[in-house]
Amino acid sequence: MARKRGRGLSAVNYPTGMNLGGDPSQALVHATTTGTFVVTLSSVDLGQGLKTVMTQICAETIGVPPDMVLIDTADTDTGPHCMGTFASRGTHRIGNAIVMAANEARAVLMEVAADELEVNATDLEADGKGAIHVKGAPTKSISVIETALAAHFKHGKTISGRGMFMAERSFPEPETGKMRPATCYAHACTIAEVEVDTETGEVEVLSLKSAYEVGRALNPKMVEQQIIGGAWMGISHALYETTEPYYPDRAHGPVDFNEYLMPGPGDLPEFGGVILERPASDGPYGAKGVGEMTANSPIPAIANAIFDAVGVRVDSLPITPEKVLRGILANEGALEPAE
């Protein structure tokens, strides 16, 4: 009867998106008469911050402030195609589509501005604040709003662009099965510290410290938010959540939030997260997918820490007190990792 401490490590290579069907996503960008750039998508923001990051990507590519961009995640009946928001693919896939669409729209914007200023479009740049000026001559300028008005009412042009992301297909070699399932990998390393009660089998996570290599953190505060939320989800998957506690037997499955266990605000460990940036060559501004791996790397780290603490190797989730106690019993109470 004791509380035993253990420490466990995990390392993860995490593919961004998937290979199926080229994993395509499309984006359309157009300017309204007054120079708001509307990005039309079928992609969904379910709280992960897609709209914010897509706004940043469009604004950066065109060279306008973020408040001149409007993300319209219309609906899947009317919007351009998107495979969906899953597999940590949003920032990378949809972001790439937006860069392409925004560049096409930007070229039209510059053509119209060039006509208005009677200069060459290649001599122009956008200042990121809502104006376009001749490189090296900031006073020779026109606002984005005036340019959009001119496009609509003088030049008869639509300032718009089409973009899509599609990965190069990879098929397995028949002999070896070898293939390239992904083009872009993020990386993670997590160290978990746990305390296991050998009498009750209960596991407490004391600390969870991770390093995440995310390509480029387009919005560092939101990456941090994913890391902390993901750490909690990882603990929850590792130790609490299941709909079938005696799978494949459906008995004793939870039916509501009273029975569906999750850690509460009082069960948090000490969190630590470090963001490493090694820009991806095929990512929008170097970004890779961050979301899901933050919930995945804690799980094997916690399982390893439990093994380190009491010598019990549990290979099914969640690692319940019952499984830990049965493991201790099976080891005849040795409480040490077997060599």
């Binding site: 750490a231 509460g264 605000p265």
Partner: peptide, 13 residues
């Protein structure tokens, strides 16, 4: 806040 469930943030923020 222990009677309030959050699925996303990890409570810490």
């Amino acid at each position: 806040i222990s009677g309030n469930i959050c699925r996303c943030t990890g409570y810490e923020p």
